[in-house]
Design a protein around this nucleic acid. Structure first.
Length: 572
RNA sequence: GCGCCCGUAGCGUAGCUGGAUAACGCGCGGCCCUCCGAAGGCUGAGACCGCAGGUUCGAAUCCUGCCGGGCGCACCA
């Protein structure tokens, strides 16, 4: 069942719901609270636009057959609220359900409303809730890879959808620049640097393979010459670590920007630790009684909040454990946001419980939630592409974008639920790009733009005012209008369920309904009024498609020609 | 051993805050361009929703136990 409480129909449904509730309390007296009346869209269109199972729920208490009860509820509700008869075509009791079919006037008015509101259709006013959304974060030791592309797509779309729904969102990226991996980076970069002077200089066994450090090493040589060749490790280690981190973070930022993703905060873990946030976070937990000492270490009682085992924050050698950074960062996040959401890679799902527990320990249960972006498998020429970092044949996100383009990549990543492992067939995406679902949706948008280019300006203006919408009476027209009505509820469900894939599928549904309408109904015809009405419907569709694509981070082109040649040209 | 995720048509998936004939794409079989863009539309075949119990008027959906696949279980980051 898709959640189809449409904007235009919602006030109608609200009034009907209230009337049904009054009818129910009159027909089924009792102390117990009445179940609230919920409407849903039946999947079978024969059952109407909406249905409610109120009678089924009340049947037992009323000790009456649901079908009979449903019939009486309907009759009584219309007596309570006679004005509903104009906007509701039918309210029929069937098998205990009450099936409701809206009058065409309901959908016609919706089209006029969408056209008048324009790109604000579906948008909610600011609600004052602050959300911290962390995603994508990769260690600053190498280029972003495909898995991060998935997390970036998910996180960015969620951020867009949340803002559209009125949330105050801060997107954050944590730069994990503490610990041994930064040392490894420093040694790897230093080796690249030394090899510029002496090609036989050994590369560390546990160093980061791949050539991406070479240009950075060259830059250091250009700036400092041979200054670091004979330097002591204690001298060059911090320099190469910091230099490498900065250079790689800058590259990661470039990749994100190219991918259409913007972060408000790039939080260095090193800076966070230096600011005393770790001590502050632990102190807060201690004040609430969830910190204790054992075996020379300092622990947090995360088991109190559903974790498998308690976690060490300060190790017996006095250094903070990695978990301390989580405590610090989330203490910080929850001081400036009501809710913190993070999207993690598949290898981190073991951390979710302890992260969620932090919120509980801070006295804000439920304030932290985590979503796992499941793993991806890449296929090229029917072969699985190995993504092992060890072997150095990582496939950078930039390379994927080069191959298939940002639009196709993002849409592809978003089409599946985050929980579902994803197989991305690069060969298919490149060679048969015309069959990629993203083009189907974009084509719908381009088709409408094309119609509007051909339409007389005067008729477009009348359509933009929502004139003549009462001429929309054909089934394909009403089906499309009803689909457009779902948009606000779909965006809300994306936010509630942290599931941007619903938006991607919805966009496809809209495009499908439009293509069918387009085939069945000529927009630019001899009947001026009808043309105006259909232009209004087409324009409303264009608005919804543009909004949906925008929330997905995919472009909404007015013409497909340019796009078609683009990835082709680059892939050669 | 413990925990998390996944098991729905040949393939890939949606539906999972319980509802009426299980949906979409690809693939396979038929059709539709004197007509606003065929990157489109119409139509056919194809599923005992992993298995077995339970809760319910009603279960793909909730609970329990199995089976199969993936991943994680450090005073590492």
């Amino acid at each position: 069942m898709s959640p189809t409480t449409a904007d235009a129909s919602s006030d109608v449904l609200a009034r009907l719901g209230a009337a049904l509730e009054r009818a129910a309390s009159a027909l089924v007296p009792g102390e117990e609270r009445m179940p609230s009346v919920a409407f849903e869209a039946p999947r079978n269109p024969d059952f109407g636009d909406f249905a409610t199972n109120l009678a089924l729920q009340l049947a037992r208490r009323a000790r009456r057959p649901p079908q009979q009860l449903a019939a009486e509820l309907v009759e009584r509700a219309f007596e309570e609220e006679p004005s509903l008869r104009e906007l509701i075509a039918e309210a029929t009791p069937v098998a205990g359900f009450i099936n409701i079919r809206m009058a065409p006037a309901c959908w016609q008015q919706l089209v006029a409303e969408i056209v008048r509101r324009g790109r604000d259709y579906g948008r909610s006013a600011p609600n004052g809730t602050r959300i911290s959304l962390e995603f994508g974060s990769a260690n600053p030791v190498g280029p972003l890879v495909v898995v991060q592309g998935r997390a970036l797509s998910l996180g960015d779309s969620l951020a867009r959808a949340m803002r559209f729904c009125g949330f105050d969102v801060t997107t954050e990226w944590i730069v994990n620049d503490e610990g041994s991996q930064l040392d490894t980076l420093a040694r790897s970069l230093h080796a690249r640097y030394r090899r510029l002077f002496d090609p036989s200089f050994p590369f560390p066994e546990d160093g980061y393979p791949g050539d991406y450090l070479v240009p950075i090493a060259v830059r250091i040589r250009d700036e400092d010459g041979a200054r670091w060749v004979d330097a002591e490790a204690a001298e060059w280690m911090p320099y190469f670590g910091r230099y490498g981190r900065d250079a790689i973070v800058a590259e990661q930022q470039t990749t994100c920007a190219r991918f259409g993703v913007h972060f408000e905060r790039w939080q260095s873990q090193h800076d966070l630790a230096a600011s005393g946030a770790i001590e502050a976070g632990i102190a807060a937990l201690r004040a609430r009684g969830f910190v204790y000492e054992a075996d020379g270490a300092t622990w947090v009682r995360t088991t109190e909040f559903g974790d498998d085992k308690d976690r060490v924050v300060i190790r017996s050698d006095g250094r903070p454990a990695y978990f301390a950074a989580d405590v610090a960062y989330h203490y910080d996040k929850l001081s400036r946001a009501d809710r913190a959401i993070l999207i993690l890679g598949p290898d981190h799902h073991g951390y979710v419980a302890r992260l969620v527990a932090i919120a509980g320990a801070f006295g804000k249960p439920g304030a932290i939630s985590a979503l796992i972006a499941q793993q991806m498998t890449l296929l090229r020429d029917g072969q699985v592409v190995s993504l092992s970092k060890r072997e150095g044949n990582v496939l950078a996100l930039d390379e994927i974008v080069d191959e298939v383009g940002v639009d196709a990549a993002r849409f592809f990543f978003l089409l599946l639920n985050a929980d579902t492992p994803l197989t991305f067939d690069l060969t298919l995406a490149v060679e048969q790009s015309s069959e990629n679902p993203v083009y189907y949706v974009q084509y719908g948008h381009a088709r409408i733009a094309s119609i509007e280019r051909k339409a007389p300006r005067e008729l477009l203006e009348r359509a933009a005012r929502g004139e003549a919408v009462e001429r929309l009476t054909e089934p394909p027209e009403l089906i499309l209008a009803r689909r457009l009505a779902e948009f606000p509820a779909i965006v809300r469900s994306v936010v509630d369920g942290l599931a941007p894939n619903r938006l991607a599928r919805y966009a496809r549904d809209v495009a499908a309904d439009f293509h069918q309408f387009y085939m069945a109904c000529t927009v630019l015809g001899d009947d001026t009024q009808l043309t105006v009405a259909r232009l209004a419907l087409a324009h409303a569709t264009k608005i919804v498609l543009a909004n949906a694509l925008e929330l997905l981070g995919v472009s909404a082109p007015d013409s497909m020609e340019r796009l078609a040649s683009d990835p082709e040209a680059r892939s050669v």
